[in-house]
Design a protein around this nucleic acid. Sequence first.
DNA 1: GTGAAAGCGCTAACAG
DNA 2: CTGTTAGCGCTTTCAC
Lengths: 345, 345
Amino acid sequence: MGRPTIDDVARAAGVTKATVSHAYSGKRPISATTKARIFAAAERLDWVPSSRARALAARRANAVGVVLSRDPAILASDAFFPAFISGVESVLAGHEIALVLQMVTGRTAEERAYRAMASGRADGVIVLDLHRVDWRVPYLRDLRLPAVLLGAYDAENPFSTVRTDDATPVRELVAHLRALGHTRIAHVSGPLDYVHSHARAAAYVESVGGDELLREGDFTAGSGRALTAELLGLPDRPTAVLYANDTMAIAGYSYARSRGLEVPADLAVAGFDDDHLSAHLSPALTSVSSDPFRRGKVAAERLLADLAGEPAESVTVDCTVLRLRASTAGPAPEAHPTPLEEELS
Amino acid sequence: MGRPTIDDVARAAGVTKATVSHAYSGKRPISATTKARIFAAAERLDWVPSSRARALAARRANAVGVVLSRDPAILASDAFFPAFISGVESVLAGHEIALVLQMVTGRTAEERAYRAMASGRADGVIVLDLHRVDWRVPYLRDLRLPAVLLGAYDAENPFSTVRTDDATPVRELVAHLRALGHTRIAHVSGPLDYVHSHARAAAYVESVGGDELLREGDFTAGSGRALTAELLGLPDRPTAVLYANDTMAIAGYSYARSRGLEVPADLAVAGFDDDHLSAHLSPALTSVSSDPFRRGKVAAERLLADLAGEPAESVTVDCTVLRLRASTAGPAPEAHPTPLEEELS
DNA sequence: GTGAAAGCGCTAACAG
DNA sequence: CTGTTAGCGCTTTCAC
């Protein structure tokens, strides 16, 4: 024995398996009475169609893939990912489509992962953490694997894209700080070869008119701390720092406080991505929420549309909201604050 | 055309598909020369075996499943999940086994998800967030779906289990606080029908000798805040609070500070799970790190062993480490501190 | 050592 | 509206 098959159901209902199949897929009109008989039989036998057989015959996995090439340590400190996946799942669930996740380190492993997806594990993939020049884009094209890219990818490509306007909140933040009297505004970015880090950094440079106070971090608390130390050691130190994520911002402001600076009185601090803890810190951290759940939703919807045969399309999700909180409240400190002595280690 | 199949490779190598299949699986001795010819042909044709066909023929998906029934909002504020998944993936990757993730809300959806897994999407599942009486255990047994349970499940069941000793760190924490002079130690737990929340709460009750200062939270910042407000409004308020996760702890200590209390001078605070931000707060938060990565690793290894036919087994991962930090440093405040006035809303 | 052939449990033409 | 017949691309007996 073992699980019942479509043949068992067909026999029990007195029809052929084709009819059973169509009763469920609806790809062919079936009379209400036979349909009822079929469903009853299926129910009675407790039949669940084999997704393996279905996948092979229909040439589709009914699954979409996500391959993640982040360092686990960074992943763990990332508010984006779980929320994004939730958003993706929120649309997949309604279509009985599964999510296949693969975490890899290194290009070879990543290529293998995408080939596995293309070999039938998934019907399409969502690509995260786009680089400004990303080998995956031509690679996926060659694999003929449908994909949705998250982030603005400028080079010619056949894929749908889900974009977010990262520049506007950065500009607003700079304007806000300027209005409070800040003139030395720094930015600790993420790795600049990521499209989103680059977009934020570019908007910052454009807003403040230079990159003198731009430092490239890597999204970890460690880099937030180290670069903050460096910035605060400058002769004409910044009075405000924008970080590319909340993890670095919090590490940064903790460092500043450990050195005797008050936030926001001596140093204004803002993050990005609005970690769930940020509103609960004291002072609460100003941040930019970017609704990863919604972006996951849109990306999944877009991928399903692609899979349904619609032409690729680039959609922009308007989802960034500036959350002004205590860490950037109040006037800027006086013009030329004393620099902190640079710390060793 | 389309992708090459095993037949193309067989033809190109001058053998039959059976031989190709065996050349890769090693389930039959193949002469070195034909093997070489086969691999060369496969390489030349750029053949990737179809995982769909393979799954159907071999009756195994080469995938393991995780179905998550958490509210997306809680998931997003959870340091556990991404790290756990990383750990799982770290072992699956080496076996060319995929991870199928499904997020659901509600029992019906969860049952559907498990049936989908059993229908061939996955060869086994890892079950998280075990309840003290959990319908999934008999359900999965009836489905005959191999599973590994994360957490101590006491009722009779056929599954492998990955346990963690949650009680010891709680006892250590209480002992530590006692040594500092605290006598009124509270605990804000997670939902008590979860096995892990219950285990922590039970250890707490046993250590302090009563449940007068035990409050049941739900892991969200909101509940951390509300229950802290309630505890601090008590006539004989606690001078130390243990929270079942860092999110609640941070929300709690932010609340306390907003009401004028100093941490740890007026109130000692400890969390659980060691969020990546906790070490970077000021004061840094005492917490219990529980190495979710490692637990994911062990759970995945255990599941693979089950799938390989080994008998089910219960393993205990010794992975909790008490991270004593500033939020519990220094002596307890005087015996009967003034209660805070209870806050409305 | 290798080949031939029979499935795995569905979907999808092609008929009627 | 429903039945018949081929596959989908592998794995796995059973032969030799």
